[in-house]
Design a protein around this nucleic acid. Structure first.
Lengths: 210, 210
DNA sequence: CGATTTACATACCGACCAGTCGGAATATAA
DNA sequence: TTATATTCCGACTGGTCGGTATGTAAATCG
């Protein structure tokens, strides 16, 4: 992730006054996500975002055209990263049950590592203006859900899972994980991976004794 | 619910000009919840709420002191009604599994019947100003969660459920139900009760074949 | 009828905020 | 040093919204 971190090779000299912070776009997105997560999109002002970076409000507009563009960027990058994280986790392979577990743990870990962005995405505002970006967001979300459904469908097909409705089962799994953005706090008593582990066991083995 | 509907007994004549609608407070709360659910608390204006009732913005202030008071009233009444609905559903009794099912179905049905209020409560803003009301809201929420935990704890105690962590299991159940406010639409393909039924079976029997 | 009470509309204020614009500051390049 | 490119500030604009003040219409009461 972040291919052009600090010590990029071709660090050619650029013209003009250098930015106050090394990567303004990144810092703005990070602080905006933090604020959006705390107070919601509508109640957050760009002036406040700027203030936390020792910027004036006008400086923000060198890097983003509108407030909406900042919000959209947060959503897209979060969905994209979630997809990659889940794909990487599932790539380890194994039985459907094992892969379901890896998927859920990967999802939970990514949520914990990108907590503010997740809260912004799942509980605040949720209105993208640009139609193309909205399509892209839907595509990324469907891709994520598609990965999960493929795992469940495989388990149902090979008999390692009961013959449940795949779409609804996937929805249940994502409901458990998504609602974590509502109550989970990074650094709390339970690690995100442990929560996912618990949920996976509950969903897999059920509440009734076997 | 609604003990003083239209044909109240002591319909004594009241002084002054009669309201345009029979129960202005009720109508304001309903329309506000609808708007809050659609656009979020911050993006909804009282002028718009008033317009849908053929009111002027100023008229609202005859019935509520602040916008926040409207929001708070929606949350409190929704939590209160949810508690009563769940209690009534569970009162039918039966095994822990049966009572868990009734609890979930009661919750889902109440969500479907009060959809806008639920969305307002679960996905929008979520900030109550008055400290006493916030405490009341937390109390109602804990009471609801307490009912659920009691059912699970009883099942664990009498051996009809596996020895799972009661708090986390309750959280999982409420996660499934709460996230419904995100995707469920009244009048859609699946009734809310059927969704709850599916979730209960999944949680109870698990994904693995028995 | 006039007095009183309730329910509304209209007009307005003050605060806040997204977005703009001109220019100042700081860097490289020639 | 001068030209140029980039970053950033500060002041401003246009508009929205919560909340208030004032007056008026419509009902009951005496």
């Amino acid at each position: 992730m972040a291919p052009g971190a600090p010590g990029e090779e071709g660090e050619e000299k650029r013209l003009g006054r250098p930015p106050l912070v090394s990567d303004p776009r990144e810092e703005i997105l990070r602080q905006a996500a933090k604020l959006f997560a705390q107070k919601g999109y509508g109640a957050s002002s760009l002036a406040e975002v700027a203030a936390t970076l020792n910027y004036s409000k006008g400086a923000i507009y060198n890097y983003f055209a509108t407030k909406q563009e900042i919000y959209d960027a947060i959503i897209i990058r979060t969905l994209d990263g979630l997809n990659q994280a889940a794909a990487a986790a599932v790539a380890e392979g194994g039985s459907p049950h094992a892969r379901l577990r890896l998927f859920m743990i990967g999802h939970a870990r990514y949520l914990a590592d990108n907590y503010d962005s997740f809260v912004t995405m799942l509980v605040g505002y949720s209105g993208m203006a640009n139609a193309a970006l909205k399509d892209e967001a839907l595509r990324l979300r469907d891709a994520h859900e598609g990965q999960l459904r493929a795992i469940i469908a495989q388990g149902v097909a090979d008999g390692s899972f009961r013959a449940m409705d795949v779409a609804m089962t996937g929805r249940a799994v994502l409901s458990l994980l998504s609602w974590m953005a509502r109550w989970y706090r990074p650094g709390g008593a339970m690690a995100a991976e442990d929560v996912a582990d618990f949920y996976c066991d509950l969903i897999a083995s059920g509440l009734l004794p076997r």
